[in-house]
Write a protein that binds this DNA or RNA. Sequence first.
DNA 1: CTCCAGGAACGAC
DNA 2: GTCGTTCCTGGA
Length: 277
Amino acid sequence: MQWLSLSSPFNLQLSLECGQFFQWYPNEKGYIIQTGQKIFYLQQKNHTLQLKAIAGSVDEEFLCHFLRLDDDLSEIFNDWKQDPFVTSLFNRYQGLRLFRQDPWECLVSFVCSSASNIPRITSNLQTLSQNFGTEIRKDGQIYHILPTLDQLRRAPLEELYASGIGFRARYLYQITRILSEDKPVEALCNLSYDHSRFYLTQLPGIGDKIAECILLFSLGHLEAFPADTWIKKVLNRFYRSSPGTSSEKISAWAKERFGRNAGYAQQYLYHYARQQL
DNA sequence: CTCCAGGAACGAC
DNA sequence: GTCGTTCCTGGA
């Protein structure tokens, strides 16, 4: 167990529960969080984080990276000081940060997210982990890691369906036939936004919206702007956007309107929409 | 007036 | 949400 002091605004609960990441669950006064081969407990007390590694090495450097504690929120939102609405959300949801997720896990998560909801997505990932992932026993507890590409590829289509992910099973199955250790999702890490987007969109089950999610949440393209039904509602109401506009067009508009960190504006707008609309 | 790219509309998954 | 299909429209 160790304590880390935060030097910048951060709200663990807000960032964890806002719908960008699904591998967590409440535990005691904090949360158990899983990503990659790491499992750890995290609790926030004002300006400090209490950390307890359960599996894998979890140090301050990793946390800083994963939680994007290095993002200067006030500098980012300074670009939108002319926008009273976004500015009010910045003050209202202080410490809401984007995470820097693992690309493969992010892909699996969001392919499962189409036409679904947060509780179900969380449950789907747990089932996939139990059915095809590595089991880890620690202190009398059993944990299951989300299956790697290689592990998921060994899963028969029928068993994928049996994991409760419905029609998304076929997408995941097809994706495991396309991706390989030689060309994994991680290979998109250093490519441009456009290039990665094109490639992702090429994969079955990944359209404009989900591609933006992966670009933003795991590939570090902060200009990405996932446009789902909630975002459409807010933009419709506060930015006079036309009701039937496609996700692709909205993302393009937002990139123009909010610039290189549009994804941060998206996260705050999204949270507002889910909370108030 | 035909051809066709491209976007809205639907239903299925 | 994504995808395949149908339908419709404006430009060549």
